[in-house]
Design a protein around this nucleic acid. Structure first.
Lengths: 340, 340
DNA sequence: AGAGTCTTCCAAAGCGCTTTGGCTTTTCCG
DNA sequence: CGGAAAAGCCAAAGCGCTTTGGAAGACTCT
């Protein structure tokens, strides 16, 4: 059942039927009702391909997925996706993932924009002066950055959590508990979130005249194994830290394992605070010693990103609105006063 | 730059240019070269919306993503996606995720098929007599099942791993080591993979005249917490098992924690074998006691699914071909002879 | 009553591609 | 050399929708 048939059936023109269906004003209310009614009764659904060709709108949001033999998709992604899906589901928005060589995403961005394959895109895990952000903003497609970039001479819309504030609070608590030597086991320090977290820790330390030793900050891909290695390295040195801030729960698994392997205890010998993105399958309260965390649901962020993208597509949201979510500091058993 | 302009520029008809580009035989080789050349030089890319409208092909593969407030996307999904992306990237295939209410996916399947939004779909985590499989096969769109369904009077194409064989081997090893009371901490037993794994364990036990006690098999969502709870329950009973087979590494984390909490050791008091889907961020060899596993890369499976879907789309693959991958049994420190 | 203004609808022109059916020209072969 | 077959190309008709530019009729106002 296509528009033509429906129009014929109603003895109306395609124009009128189309307008009635799309809520244009220049059609009699009764006619509209008749049309709506018939459409529903016959299960008419406009062909999206045709509509897309005519309007250039696709009803999808896009994401360029960096891939490659050496590239692993972050497990956080799936939680983010859940959130995106939560919103998208109720709005018949689809998500198209365009896999791209991680080293050449530009081609793919250009392709999906030129082809009008999607109405909007989002960008995740941005870095300072991230080329994707400048690219996409010149390409002129609605977009939203999940996280923040930096160092541009223009503004852009984003949704981020207060990483600096979170780690500032975490570090401040540790300092208040008497810790003098903190360490930070961070994610890839080319990404903005990691930079912000480090900044937060440094700021908290500085406030008490302390510093973050050069060798007390690690920047690694966030795997259990890397958490383990970093911790071993940290704790086997002479000026071993007495407290660790850690950028992910998965790494924290490794931290806990390393501490135990060294015959040390949490929080007796070392206090630990990690960032928790709220996974349903791994909870900080269930660690052998319940883990203190800075908590922010990445799933909720996903839903919000979808919501804002939808708003931008329909013109309800405009401009370079930045949105920063506060982060909860949840104190559990993994922190204690510094050992004597 | 569109077809019309390109044709004009070459003083050829759109027909000829289109045919030259799409490899039809009825065009002179030299003409074809000229066309190809000009197309490349001017960066001509056929508009996918138009092509789609004309042909009904979209160049995308689809996945209906079950969502809902109580639905969590499995973290395995992201690894599978990595694999899918690995293949899709080099073939300019995009993946479209259509979020759907987990309790009503049919509507969404019908929509994406009716709308010809995608050229093929895949189905994951199937259950016996999974309604999605029968639906999709009547809808007549190319598809592939990742995993297996059962109990149909028709065949369908799938890619699965030998879950039964894997857990058979694992259980057999444990029995050979003298274990008489095994337990299985399994995933959702409405899903086929879980059923197959249980079957494998039972078969191995039966071969030695043993059985899997009713209360020695748990079926739970695969989270760390559930692994922990299941293990506590198992080990606190009078006829506690001396060996555990576990369906996921994440649950195994909980198993390990529970064993430790109870003051027991692996493998001294209890042997453990888990299934490893090969995550880059959590490796069995890095468990406090290196974990024996049945191993099968879900990422490779993703790539293969993409490959086969592409083949089905282009008509290179047909029929209900089932493909079952063998699973490696990797023995590490977490298994030992049964305690006396 | 006549001019102007709404209201309501329509025919037709795209959107950019593929494909059908046909028309020339060339090639082949007895 | 003549006729058939093959090769190479084209005009035009879709695909199913949106949107432009009217047009006809109803209504208002002076």
């Amino acid at each position: 059942m296509n528009l033509k048939q429906l129009a014929q059936m109603l003895a109306l023109s395609q124009t009128t039927v189309s307008r009635a269906l799309n809520g244009y004003p220049e059609v009699n209310e009764e006619t509209r009702r008749r049309v709506m009614d018939a459409a529903k009764r016959h299960g008419y659904r406009p062909n999206p391909s045709a509509r897309r060709l005519a309007t250039g709108k696709s009803g999808m949001i896009g994401y360029v997925l960096p891939t490659g033999a050496t590239v692993d998709i972050d497990p956080h992604f799936v939680e983010f996706l859940s959130g995106l899906g939560d919103y998208a589901r109720s709005h018949e928005l689809d998500l198209v993932l365009s896999p791209a060589d991680a080293d050449d995403q530009e081609t793919t961005y250009r392709r999906i924009v030129a082809n009008r394959q999607v109405d909007a895109v989002y960008i995740s895990s941005p870095r300072p002066q991230d080329s994707r952000v400048s690219l996409v903003s010149t390409l002129g497609i609605p977009f939203l950055v999940h996280g923040r970039s930096e160092g541009f001479d223009f503004d852009y819309p984003y949704l981020d959590i207060d990483n600096e504030g979170a780690f500032h609070e975490a570090a401040r608590l540790l300092v208040q508990l008497g810790h003098r030597r903190l360490a930070l086991i961070n994610g890839d320090d080319r990404e903005t979130f990691a930079i912000h977290r480090e900044r937060g820790v440094r700021r908290a330390l500085a406030a008490s005249g302390l510093t973050l030793g050069e060798r007390h900050v690690c920047s690694v891909v966030m795997t259990e194994e890397n958490g383990y290695r970093a911790t071993r390295r940290l704790l086997e040195e002479s000026d071993a830290p007495t407290a660790i801030a850690c950028s992910s729960l998965i790494m924290a698994l490794g931290v806990v394992r390393a501490v135990r392997d060294l015959g040390l205890t949490i929080p007796g010998d070392v206090s630990l605070i990690a960032h928790d993105d709220v996974f349903p399958w791994l909870k900080p309260e269930n660690f052998s010693v319940p883990l203190s965390t800075t908590r922010s649901s990445i799933r909720l962020a996903g839903a919000r990103v979808a919501e804002r993208l939808a708003a931008r597509i329909s013109g309800l949201e405009e401009g370079a609105r930045g949105e920063v979510w506060p982060v909860d500091l949840v104190v559990r058993g993994s922190v204690a006063g510094a050992p004597a």
